[in-house]
Write a protein that binds this DNA or RNA. Structure first.
Length: 428
RNA sequence: GCGGCCAUAGCUCAGAUGGUAGAGCGCCAGGUUGUGGUCUUGGAUGUCGCGGGUUCGAGUCCCGUUGGUCGCCCCA
C-alpha cells in the first residue's frame, strides 16, 4: 500500500529510467558546453536572501511569493535558490573574478526551488542546467550562447518540434519609451483588458504581451511594438544577433511578445518552446542581463545566458524514446558455495578490466542464473564447472543461450567479440 | 493563490442501482541433485489516500483534508 510518508509536495525521486534520463541531460549538456569553452561552477543551493531579492527584482512572482526563505539559527534570512543566474553573478563578485580575464563562461547544473502549485513539468524542487557568459557586451556572445543551447538539444535528439523564439527588449532607453507607449495604449483600452492584465498594467505592463487571454491578445494586434521604440544602437545590436544566429545555423522565429519574467533582462530575450509539454512549453529560456553583476556589488559586467529545466528536457527525451538503457552486467556464477571464493577472484578480474560484473549473493546455480536473467545480464561466467580445467571458466551468452569453456584471460576478448563490451576493449 | 478531474494489491486497472474486494503483469515456492529467459502447478499481498458523517451496513453517498493531474497566474 501507499506509505504514509510521501515525498514532500512538488518533489520527486529520481530512480531507474528517470534518473538515467536526468543524468543523460546533464552529461550531454556538460559535454557540449565544454566544447564551447564553458567551465563548470557549483554555487551554494541557498544564499543570503538579498542575492535574489536584489537580483531578480520585486515585480516578479518568483521573488514576491515563490521563494523558500527562512531564518537560520543565527537570525540570517537565507533562501533556497529559485534560479542560479543571480548566484553565479554573486560568485563572480565574491571571488574577485570581475578582475579576471573576461568573459568568464560558466556552466552549471543543480536543483532549484520555487514554492508553486505543482503540475506536469513544474515542481517545487526542480533542476536546471544553464550557461552564462559573464563580461561580454557583444552580440556574438548572445548568438553563441543560444547556439550552444540548440546544439545541446540536438545532441539530446529532442530538437524536433522545438523552435527558438527571440525578441529584443532593447536598452534602458528603448524599454522606457516602449513601456510608456504601452501604458498609453492599454490605458486607453483598460475596459477591454482582462482583470489579470489590468493589474499588470500597474505593476509590469510588458507582461501584458505575455497574456494568454483571448481578449488581451486581440488588443495586442494593434498594440505598439518594441521595434518602433528601439534606439539605433539597440536595433543594430538585435540585427547582429540575428545575423550571427543564422551563421551558427540556428533556426529561429521572431516573437515580439516574448518579455521574460525576471527583471534583470535587457536586449536579447529568447525561449525555446515546444507544443509537446502542455502549458509548460518553455524548455530553455534566457537573455541578456547587463546590470545584474552590478547589483551584486561588482563593476558593470554585461552578460548573457540561459537556463533549462532538466525535468522538461527529460520528458522530451522520454517521448522521443531516447531513454538510455541500463548498463548490462556480466553475471559471475559460482556453481556452488564452494566456488564462491574463486568467483570473487573472477569478479575482480573482470572489474579491473572495465567490465560491469555482478554476483548473486545466494542460492544454487539455478537461483543465481534466474537472478542474472532478472538483472538483464548479457552474459554469465560460470566458475567451478566440472568441464572447466584450472584457470578456465564457462562463458555463457544469455541472449543466444550458447556457452563455451575458455581460459579466464580470454573472457574480455570473447565479450568484445560477442559485441557486448566495447568498453572492455578500451580498458584492456 | 484560483478552477476542473482523479486517488482500489509493487505496476496497470475492474468492482450497475451501498452488503465487509478481483484480474493481468510482477513477486515467492515447486516441476529432483550444476544452467536463466518459454511452459506448467501452487502461494502471499491490500486497515479500497487520510479524517469525519449518513446508514443495520460504504471502495461505492456527503463533507473535509492530503496528494496527483489539467488549466489560470507565473515560470524552467
Amino acid at each position: 500500500m501507499a506509505s504514509p510518508l510521501q515525498p514532500a509536495r512538488g518533489t520527486h525521486d529520481l530512480i531507474g529510467e528517470g534518473f538515467r534520463r536526468h543524468q543523460a541531460v546533464i552529461d550531454t549538456a556538460r559535454r557540449i558546453a565544454a566544447l564551447y569553452g564553458f567551465e563548470e561552477w557549483a554555487t551554494p543551493i541557498f544564499e543570503d536572501t538579498r542575492v535574489f531579492a536584489r537580483g531578480l527584482g520585486d515585480t516578479s512572482d518568483v521573488v514576491s511569493k515563490e521563494m523558500y526563505s527562512f531564518e537560520d539559527r543565527g537570525g540570517e534570512s537565507v533562501t533556497l535558490r529559485p534560479e542560479n543566474t543571480a548566484g553565479v553573478c554573486r560568485a563572480l563578485v565574491s571571488n574577485g573574478l570581475t578582475q579576471s580575464n573576461l568573459p568568464r563562461k560558466v556552466f552549471y547544473a543543480g536543483p532549484m526551488f520555487r514554492y508553486e502549485r505543482p503540475q506536469k513539468g513544474r515542481y517545487r524542487q526542480f533542476h536546471q542546467i544553464g550557461i552564462e557568459v559573464l563580461g561580454a557586451a557583444e552580440p556574438l556572445a548572445d548568438a553563441e550562447v543560444i547556439a550552444c543551447g540548440w546544439q545541446i538539444q540536438q545532441a539530446l535528439g529532442i530538437e524536433e518540434g522545438t523552435i527558438l523564439e527571440i525578441n529584443t527588449l532593447g536598452d534602458a532607453a528603448s524599454r522606457e519609451a516602449y513601456r510608456a507607449a504601452l501604458v498609453t495604449y492599454f490605458t486607453g483600452h483598460a475596459d477591454q483588458l482582462s482583470p489579470d492584465s489590468r493589474i499588470r498594467l500597474e505593476k509590469n505592463p510588458l507582461r501584458i504581451l505575455d497574456s494568454k487571454d483571448a481578449g488581451d491578445r486581440a488588443l495586442m494586434a494593434e498594440a505598439p511594438t518594441i521595434h518602433s521604440h528601439l534606439t539605433a544602437e539597440a536595433a543594430a545590436f538585435y540585427e547582429t544577433v540575428k545575423r550571427h544566429l543564422a551563421a551558427f545555423g540556428v533556426p529561429f522565429r521572431e516573437n515580439p511578445r516574448i518579455v521574460r519574467g525576471l527583471d534583470y533582462y535587457s536586449h536579447t530575450a529568447f525561449e525555446f518552446v515546444t507544443e509537446r509539454l502542455g502549458a509548460q512549453g518553455t524548455v530553455m529560456a534566457g537573455g541578456r542581463y547587463n546590470g545584474l553583476v552590478e547589483e551584486m556589488g561588482g563593476p558593470p559586467t554585461p552578460s548573457v545566458g540561459w537556463a533549462a529545466g532538466i525535468e522538461r528536457l527529460a520528458m522530451l527525451v522520454e517521448t522521443a524514446g531516447l531513454t538510455p538503457a541500463a548498463p548490462r552486467a556480466v553475471a559471475v556464477l559460482p556453481t556452488g558455495e564452494a566456488a564462491e571464493a574463486a568467483a570473487i577472484e573472477v569478479l575482480q578480474f573482470l572489474r579491473a578490466r572495465g567490465v560491469v560484473a555482478e554476483i548473486a549473493y545466494r542460492g544454487n546455480l539455478k537461483r543465481r542464473m534466474e537472478r542474472a536473467n532478472r538483472i538483464g545480464a548479457a552474459a554469465a561466467v560460470l566458475v567451478g564447472a566440472a568441464e572447466a580445467g584450472p584457470g578456465e571458466v564457462v562463458l555463457r551468452n544469455l541472449d543466444a543461450g550458447t556457452q563455451a569453456v575458455l581460459p579466464l584471460g580470454n573472457v574480455t576478448a570473447a565479450l568484445v567479440e560477442m559485441g557486448l563490451f566495447e568498453a572492455a576493449a578500451r580498458a584492456t
